[in-house]
Write a protein that binds this DNA or RNA. Structure first.
Lengths: 250, 250
DNA sequence: TCCGGGTTTCCGTTGAATGGAAGGCAAGTA
DNA sequence: TACTTGCCTTCCATTCAACGGAAACCCGGA
């Protein structure tokens, strides 16, 4: 019942995560749960192909070849590219950290982030996953995603800060409001001193493909203005996606 | 002498390129040079793991999992992220299409691109490779790259437009000037009606890690202004890279 | 010098990858 | 309706490459 060669090699790649961008051979073997000798051989092949690169220190990192491939992923790459100018506009208009996220299973995956020139303490690296129930973009993705996912998330509300919503009923109530209002907010539910607003981003067919959010230290009476700015940006992204959708596929 | 399982699976992934972002099973098998039955199994595994996704049409595209991994590639992803705000500034200052490229073998790989809101005819998709000798960023990468690469490129100057430089001596002369001046230009050498200016982007250690360029319809007396703007951006990127280099590795 | 951590090589065993062949399926054609 | 064509999928007997324990190796530190 042991896994196939290919999937084992892939699991080696899966050992990388936002907090572990470089790993030693033994780390990789440990994380992928295989003998070092085996990992050594597989890593060798991955390296030879360019999926992994080796630092001077001997540690391995994701190689250029995979980065290239990532660029070829039609959905995310297209989305990122379409969204890029609008993220900038949004930053210009609000001077807040801007996030673009999609749903990945029961978590929110951050696919782009713009914090401008100011070096903000990194809350969310690109490529990282954050819980749905404690972030603005997460709540949006939850509200417009499959019910099954919502159910699953409701069953597992882990506490992050003192303000994190951990009662299913309360979260459900909020999700309903998100659906009604078309935007979500958080208040220090993920990290103290950080509030957020987020809106859905729709694809050409009207389906929600991503969430666009901004993080601000405090959600004063600005809320209406921020929501308006977010909506303009989200609509712009949708328009770009629609335009390119017709031209895209040959 | 047949290749290992892993490398065959990887070759399947390598079948994708900027012009073929979606492929059928048979396409993949053909391009990777293996029997369909074998490709079927391997593709199945890649799909199961999330390296490939399947469209409604039955075609396969690069899956989310690989996109994620791409985000984790320290060099390119870090570079892209560091460069992002400066690309926007540059666009704001020049309203020209902005390119960020790195060297990949003997070609220039475009890792980011910003054409603002205007829907410009796509010259260069992100992830595509363009020849060194006919692009601004290419000439920069050539000028600051290994001599061996330069020699190789000089030996194979394919014509693209009527203005493409195809005489090794002339290109070499230009490369020398790039090294002296610190910037490169092109005039309709890659596509008619498009001129470009590019400068090197240096890493923390002073080594050239990428090239930053802009494309304009015409290179009038603006050149000095454009070069200045490019340099400001390139230096900004370097500074960001330097700042994060210290914090980056834990 | 010896130790402990990693890495690399070796090689006999074995079980998983292989791919030809045949069966499906859907669209286009007579 | 029957025939063709071009896909995708399943099957399974053969075989050959993956496996991983063991031992050597390398290197920095005590």
């Amino acid at each position: 019942m042991s896994a196939s060669v290919t999937s084992r090699a892939l699991n080696l790649l899966g050992a990388f995560d936002p907090d572990h961008r470089s790993l030693t051979l033994s780390d990789l073997a440990r994380r992928a749960g295989m003998p070092i000798a085996t990992a050594h051989r597989l890593v060798g092949e991955l390296h030879r192909w360019g999926a992994l690169a080796r630092l001077d220190s001997g540690e391995y990192v994701i190689g250029r070849r995979l980065w290239d491939l990532g660029l070829l992923a039609p959905v995310q790459a297209g989305l990122r590219q379409a969204a890029s100018p609008f993220l900038h506009d949004l930053y210009g208009a609000t001077l807040a950290t801007v996030h673009l996220a999609v749903r990945d299973g029961t978590e929110a995956l951050y696919i782009d982030r713009l914090s401008g020139h100011v070096s903000v303490p990194v809350v969310s690296k690109i490529g990282s996953r954050l819980p749905m129930h404690a972030t603005g973009v997460g709540k949006v993705l939850l509200a417009y995603g499959p019910d099954q996912v919502l159910a699953e998330v409701l069953g597992n509300l882990t506490r992050v800060t003192a303000y994190t919503i951990t009662q299913p009923a309360r979260l459900l109530e909020q999700i309903r409001r998100v659906r009604a209002d078309g935007y979500a907010t958080t208040g220090e539910e993920m990290s103290l001193g950080a509030c957020s607003v987020a809106v859905p981003v729709r694809g050409p067919g009207g389906e929600v493909v991503a969430a666009l959010g901004i993080v601000v230290p405090e959600l004063r009476r600005d809320k209406a203005r921020l929501v308006a700015a977010l909506r303009v940006a989200a609509q712009g992204i949708t328009r770009t996606l629609t335009d390119s959708a017709s031209a895209q596929w040959k």
